[in-house]
Amino acid sequence: MPTLEWLLLTYKVPTEPARKRVSIWRKLKGMGAVYLQGGVCVLPKTDDHLRRLKMLENEIAEAEGEALLLATIGLDQKQQDKIISRFNADRDDEYKEFIEKCVAFEAEIAYETTIQHFTYAELGENEQELTKFKTWIAKIQKLDFYGAPLNKEAIERLVRSEAILDAYAHNVFAAQAENRPAGEPGPP
């Protein structure tokens, strides 16, 4: 594997006001940063990350804190693998949560199907939820720098959820009087 470069940010900010410290933490986590310990995090070395970390360095200074931004590499393959494992573990945690929400979504549709609750309102609500899932997985994948193991399972689960919603939509359309041939009764 080629030697990978990372950007290493170390920083300290005053404990008060807490909102400034939390804001910095959220921005770093939103970029996909991995914390090696408190106030020390890494990101893959890219122009975008460098630009965003420099902006964050300024924000830290404005919060009366201190920051040091360095480019670094692992000393050997073992060290490099440790860092990649940390990135992948963070993404897998997010993929696990995503998969759990998809499973709950599928269970909800199964319940609606069992009780034959086939309404346009319910379909619309479920379509909105699926749209949120698509946005959510795209955000996770954007931060999946090294191909976390659960990526494939999460994608498969999303595809399954889409198929289940499509089947539910078919039932909704079939249950509506305007979609049945004249004189044909609705579902039992």
Results as ranks from 00 to 15, higher is better:
2 P>M: 15
3 T>D: 03
3 T>Y: 01
6 W>F: 15
7 L>Q: 07
7 L>S: 03
10 T>N: 15
11 Y>P: 06
14 P>M: 06
19 R>S: 14
21 R>T: 05
23 S>C: 02
25 W>I: 08
28 L>T: 14
29 K>M: 08
30 G>R: 02
37 Q>W: 02
39 G>L: 06
41 C>A: 12
41 C>N: 04
42 V>E: 08
44 P>H: 06
45 K>G: 00
47 D>V: 08
47 D>A: 15
51 R>H: 12
54 K>P: 00
59 E>H: 06
60 I>S: 03
65 G>E: 07
65 G>K: 05
66 E>H: 10
69 L>T: 07
70 L>T: 04
71 A>K: 12
72 T>N: 00
74 G>A: 13
74 G>Y: 01
74 G>W: 02
77 Q>I: 08
78 K>T: 12
78 K>I: 08
81 D>C: 04
81 D>Q: 15
84 I>K: 11
84 I>P: 00
86 R>N: 03
86 R>E: 11
86 R>T: 01
88 N>L: 00
88 N>W: 00
96 K>Y: 06
99 I>K: 08
99 I>F: 05
105 F>R: 03
109 I>A: 02
109 I>D: 01
111 Y>S: 11
111 Y>N: 11
115 I>M: 10
116 Q>Y: 08
117 H>S: 14
118 F>E: 05
123 L>G: 01
127 E>H: 06
129 E>S: 11
133 F>C: 06
134 K>C: 04
134 K>Q: 15
136 W>F: 12
139 K>I: 01
142 K>V: 02
145 F>A: 02
146 Y>T: 01
155 I>K: 08
157 R>W: 04
163 A>V: 01
169 A>T: 03
170 H>D: 15
171 N>A: 07
173 F>K: 10
174 A>C: 03
174 A>F: 06
178 E>V: 13
184 E>Q: 15
185 P>S: 12
185 P>Q: 11
186 G>R: 10
